[in-house]
Write a protein that binds this DNA or RNA. Structure first.
Length: 127
RNA sequence: GGAGAAGACCGGGUGAUCGCUCGCCGCGGCGACGUGGCGAGAGGAAAGUCCGGACUUCAUGGGCAGGGCGCUGGGUAACCCCCAGGCGGAGCAAUCCGACACCAGCACCACAGAGAACAGACCGCCGAUGGCCAACGCGAUUGGACCCCAAUCUCAUCGCUGCGGAUCAGGCAAGGGUGAAACGGCGGGGUAAGAGCCCACCGCGGUGAUGGCGACAUCACCGGCAGGGUAAGCGUCGCUCGAUGCAAGGCCAAAUAGGAAGACACCUGCCGGUCCUCUUCGGAGCAUCGGCGACCGGCUGGCCCGGCCGAGGUCUUCGGGUAGGUCGCUUGAGGUUCGAGGUAACUCGAAUCCCAGAGAAAUGAUCUCCUCUGAUCGAGAGCAUAUCUUGGUCAGGACAGAAUCCGGCUUAUAGGUCUUCUUCACCG
RNA sequence: UCCCCGGUAGCUCAGUUGGUAGAGCAGCCGGCUGUUAACCGGCUGGUCGCAGGUUCGAGUCCUGCCCGGGGAG
């Protein structure tokens, strides 16, 4: 695939709208006060995360900020994610009021409860 | 120092760790790619998409329609932009604001008001002139007052003049009142009352001179009031504008469906009647008359004219195109520093630099120190709960994110710096 | 990256040559009815999205913003 011609983030994130629609159709849904999450099993070996921020969220600066925050969260826990899933994140406006550490705590505990993290018992310090 | 006006600029800095995108170099690999190093990586508005261009493809015969602009001169690739000037308006002033061409034609001007468009007479003023009444004026006659006469006086009658009076015809538009706006303003003369009727000043219009490239200004003379407003209503005049927008457009090209594109030559009637010729008696040809059809569809980016294409044939080629990829994609009306010209916008010349190129879209996360602002606590100076200096703690640091690229406009914007100018107050 | 519509009462919408802002539903009051609905009569309710400008006067004309909706791959 042409997408894999590039390195780095391109493997970890969902970009094509077709894939995002697929997850929206077949995914399992759960929500917190900071974000909504859709989880879907795929045949692919990699796990990909898509971040969707609608126009209602705010201006371009606020939308970019939300996407950057969740991308950073994904990068920090990506090594511990179990392969073979597609995740879709819908950030909420309340998440922007939290600090990065608080958001990370919510993010990790949510993923752990869903069994998406490989090392559930060890509280991972700063990578 | 207070208040204010204009312009220019900045838009937190520094360092550490973990990451992202692109470029270059090294290594590994056929390659995709992986990995290491170095370098670069959001703005003054990147925004709104309101104008103007570059560039792209299509069109490129004529006319009309339509859009835009609108004091003058300049700048520019161009402009609904900028600079300088004129005029009008606001302000004590610095300064600011202005779609600021044309009312010839059509249309509209509600309510109020007498009258609202080449107007009108409600209240009002006058009643000069022609009528009406008519002396307290003049004359005549008769009677009376004094014994008589004259004079004089008085009453009555008549006549004349027409003082005066109210008003009709009529004159007036100064004043009141209505309105956003009422056929110049104010003062004087004049008049029956008035009126540019006359005069001075101002306004207005015309002509001329002077200054200025010009808009226009100043002055002189003349006219004697010409005639309302609205063109961001229809319109007129002048200038100007082809459409399309990087999702433009070029190239490569899965799957599926099946044809697609180009070139060439060629074709213009049908039906009925009549006449003539030929005839194998079925018809054919030619001429004329009548009727039907000369249209419809598509293209020519809005409409009309004009133009082109159409059925079928022959020939040539294998291509067109979606997902996806790739190019366009960042070197440009470019920046910086000097020098020159110009009041300025800006231009010219030289040197020098390369300064984001993503693609559901890269610039992020955490923290240290410094800086700015606010709150609070403490110390010091101080009569002081003004104020100043210093230290600690806690918050906060705006508006906002490139998407083909430039020139502008508009809008959002915490806080701060600098320059110039106006005015007021105080001191000298 | 562009293009095109719309914003008027609580809701759905009218509103042309610029001149008192309207209709239906809803709400409130009264009547009818044993009561409610329906019906009848009346009333209330508006920064005409915002701000400037043109005009004597703007819902209407012009300009600039704000918000909402739709279209072009």
């Amino acid at each position: 695939m042409a997408r894999e011609r590039r390195g780095g983030d391109r493997k970890r994130f969902l970009r094509a709208s077709r894939d995002i629609e697929h997850v929206k159709q077949h995914g399992r849904r759960l929500s917190t006060t900071s974000f909504n999450l859709l989880i879907c099993r795929t045949e692919d070996n990699d796990t990909r995360v898509g971040i969707v921020v609608g126009k209602r969220f705010g201006g371009a600066v606020r939308r970019n900020r939300a996407k950057r925050l969740f991308r950073e969260l994904t990068r920090q826990v990506y090594g511990q994610l179990i392969a073979g899933y597609s995740l879709l994140v819908f950030p909420k406006r309340d998440a922007m009021g939290l600090s990065f550490d608080a958001l990370k705590a919510v993010w990790c505990s949510t993923l752990r409860r869903q069994g998406m993290l490989r090392t559930p018992e060890t509280e991972s310090p700063h990578p």
